[in-house]
Amino acid sequence: MNGFLDRAKKLLDEHDEKVDQALDKVREKIDESAKNQYSEPLGKAVQFAKDHTGEGDTTRR
């Protein structure tokens, strides 16, 4: 199991920009289907995920 997690982390690090784009698309779809009912907490969750994925993260401040 540990090897799988290491490979997953490596992929996230290598493709950080694509991961961030995917997170944005998922957020849009959920927001749309929930009729913007959970926009704020969903936005915070997506930002948290973006901040914690990828070694050279494109969204870190």
Rank of each mutant, 00 (worst) to 15 (best):
N2Q: 12
N2I: 08
G3Q: 13
F4S: 09
F4T: 09
F4D: 09
L5F: 08
L5I: 10
D6T: 14
R7A: 14
R7H: 10
R7G: 03
A8Y: 10
A8V: 15
A8L: 15
K9M: 14
K9T: 11
K9W: 08
K9G: 03
K10P: 03
L11Y: 14
L12E: 03
L12M: 13
L12A: 00
D13Y: 01
E14R: 10
E14H: 08
E14C: 09
E14W: 06
H15P: 01
H15Q: 13
D16V: 06
D16R: 04
E17N: 13
K18D: 07
K18L: 10
K18C: 07
V19M: 01
D20H: 03
Q21N: 11
A22I: 11
A22T: 14
A22Q: 12
L23W: 06
L23M: 10
K25E: 15
K25C: 12
K25S: 14
V26W: 12
V26Q: 10
R27F: 14
R27Y: 14
E28I: 08
E28C: 06
K29M: 06
K29G: 00
K29P: 01
I30C: 02
D31I: 01
D31N: 11
D31F: 02
E32F: 07
E32H: 08
E32A: 04
S33W: 12
A34I: 06
K35S: 15
N36H: 11
N36V: 03
Y38L: 08
Y38R: 05
Y38K: 06
Y38G: 00
Y38P: 02
S39V: 04
S39H: 01
S39E: 03
S39P: 00
E40K: 11
E40A: 13
E40H: 08
P41E: 03
P41M: 06
P41T: 04
P41F: 01
P41I: 06
G43N: 06
G43S: 05
K44D: 09
K44P: 00
K44R: 14
A45S: 15
A45K: 02
V46P: 01
V46L: 05
Q47Y: 03
Q47W: 01
F48N: 13
F48G: 06
A49S: 12
A49P: 01
A49Q: 06
K50W: 06
D51T: 10
D51K: 14
D51E: 15
H52G: 09
T53M: 09
T53R: 00
E55V: 05
E55F: 05
E55R: 10
E55W: 04
G56N: 15
G56K: 13
D57C: 08
T58Y: 05
T58P: 00
T58H: 03
T59W: 05
T59L: 05
R60I: 09
R60A: 12
R61G: 02
R61C: 04
